[in-house]
Amino acid sequence: MKENKCRLMVIDDESIVCKRLKQIMEKSGYEVAVFIDGTRAIEELSKKSYDVIVTDLRMDGMDGMKILESAKEINPESKVIMLTGFADMETVREAFRKGVFDVISKPVEIDTIKQAIARAEKEILQPTY
């Protein structure tokens, strides 16, 4: 068992996504904070550091792209995984330009998101660059 699994933040204005990801990732041993409001999530990020941030792309107010920018600005080492129900190529490209770790379309199979998070975690522990 790895000591101190990384700290995870989930942001989605659909509460069911937060609720289920929290449950699933906690069972795998992660510490998980969830936010349905992007602005509050950013506030939290400036107070406490998170390793992996899973955020929905399209949300009212603070959307996923802004969260990506702020998260990278606050902590360039953090990994951001973006969830989206409607991925157009342009947005995906923009997200990668801004340093997103992965973009995953919803609905997502639980194994897929778990693996993405595990890959992000691995990269934090042993950076490939």
Binding site: I16, V17, L21, G85, K106, V108, I110
Partner: peptide, 13 residues
């Protein structure tokens, strides 16, 4: 298939 709980989906889906 989605009712099996093996996917994360929301009302938009």
């Amino acid at each position: 298939d989605k009712l099996g709980g093996n996917y994360i989906f929301d009302i938009n889906y």
